[in-house]
């Protein structure tokens, strides 16, 4: 008889090393790195610390360890850290049948500590370098304020990730379902950005907002990249070439993305020539910053499905670009919507 069919497990599909790392996984990994710098030791440590005093007999310390299910504790004298005592030290005393001896006789005096205001990455490094599993945490005045273990760090990171993840999930969920949740004959999301002329310090800001919006809306990586390049070039053109800046507008519909850049001057005398690779009117000063390669409109044209440049000298310029979305990117397609044929090819 044939064995019943069942769904293969992830391990069977991808082998022992698990599934391949996705972009999202890679993003999460680097977030853990970030967190190891962002999170401070005092945020994840155990603040309620059991301590011993140097004159406490070992038998009593053993009771404290046992009752609290811990494997070691700091020894404190006059609020200052005098040493640490671990189960290993107690075992040494047990071998000599010496449990009545004071803690000071068996404790380790040279104690490695970390500061409560340090990042958890400092504690992680100290664990690895010194081969330790537990570290006392001290404040500026060397007073003991807590203990930190590898478990505390893992828990701290998980809690922070969970918090991050939830926030981003909620945002993404809301955004990616926008087109499903709102029913109309034609739903369009419009993003509008005012771009100031010559404001190079803000160059790329609108493009990065747009990129983030598209990711949240559920656009695929390829579409997001094409869109980012096109709007970046359009944004920089508004900064570099216009008299008074302009408006960058993005209209997202389930079946296409329309990007437009509008300004009120100076206008382009020859709208054919600007599509020639290498043709540029940028000033020497702008070129020194790496712009004015004469590749802007060439890049845009390469990234979009249709591009339409209209300009009147003395009045202004309007650039409209469209990217058609083949299927289901933004929460499915509705009846009655058809892709308009590409006009620029």
């Amino acid at each position: 008889m044939c064995p019943p069919t069942r769904t293969p497990t992830e391990q069977e599909i991808y082998g022992r090393h698990g599934r391949p790392i996705t972009d999202q996984d890679a993003h999460d990994i680097s977030r853990v790195e970030e967190l190891s710098y962002d999170l401070k030791i005092h945020e994840v440590m155990t603040a309620d610390v059991k301590t011993a005093t140097p004159d406490m007999p070992l038998s009593k310390v053993l009771d404290v360890l046992r009752m609290n299910r811990i494997s070691g504790l700091p020894v404190v004298e006059n609020e200052k850290l005098a040493g640490v005592l671990s189960l290993e030290d107690i075992v040494r005393a047990l071998q000599k049948n010496d449990l009545s001896a004071p803690t000071s006789q068996y404790m380790t005096r040279e104690v490695v500590t970390v500061a409560n205001y340090d990042s958890i990455v400092k504690a992680m490094r100290t664990f690895t370098e010194k081969g330790l599993g537990r570290l006392p945490v001290v404040d500026e005045s060397s007073k003991i304020v807590g203990m930190i273990t590898k478990g505390d760090i893992t828990r701290g990171i998980l809690v922070a990730l969970q918090r991050d993840y939830k926030e981003e999930e909620v945002r993404r969920y809301r955004a990616s379902h926008l087109f499903e949740d709102i029913i109309s004959e034609r739903t369009t999301l419009v993003l509008r950005y005012t771009i100031k002329a010559r404001d190079f310090t803000q160059g790329g800001k609108a493009s990065s907002y747009i990129k983030r919006a598209l990711i949240r809306l559920g656009a695929d990586a390829q579409i997001t990249r094409r869109c980012s390049i096109a709007v970046y070039e359009a944004e920089m053109n508004l900064i570099i070439h216009t008299t008074n800046g302009g408006i960058l507008k993005l209209e997202v519909e389930p079946h296409r993305i329309t990007m437009s850049a509008t300004d009120d001057g100076p206008g382009i005398p020859d709208t054919e020539r600007v599509f020639q690779p290498g043709y540029s009117t940028a000033t020497e000063q702008v070129r020194e910053m790496g712009f004015g390669a004469g590749m802007g409109l060439v890049n845009m044209k390469r990234c979009v499905d249709t591009i339409d440049l209209g300009s009147t000298v003395g009045k202004g310029t309007k650039l409209v670009m469209r990217i058609l979305i083949p299927n289901q990117t933004f929460g499915g397609r509705r009846e009655g919507q058809t892709d308009e044929p590409s006009t620029n090819h």
Partner: peptide, 30 residues
Amino acid sequence: LLSCVMAGAKKGHVWTTLQAHLNIVAVAAL
């Protein structure tokens, strides 16, 4: 040339450049 970088640099690349002004940050992020 930042337009060339926008077109040619891929995710995960090392980008070598002489440029050091603010706009390289936006290009690198995008």
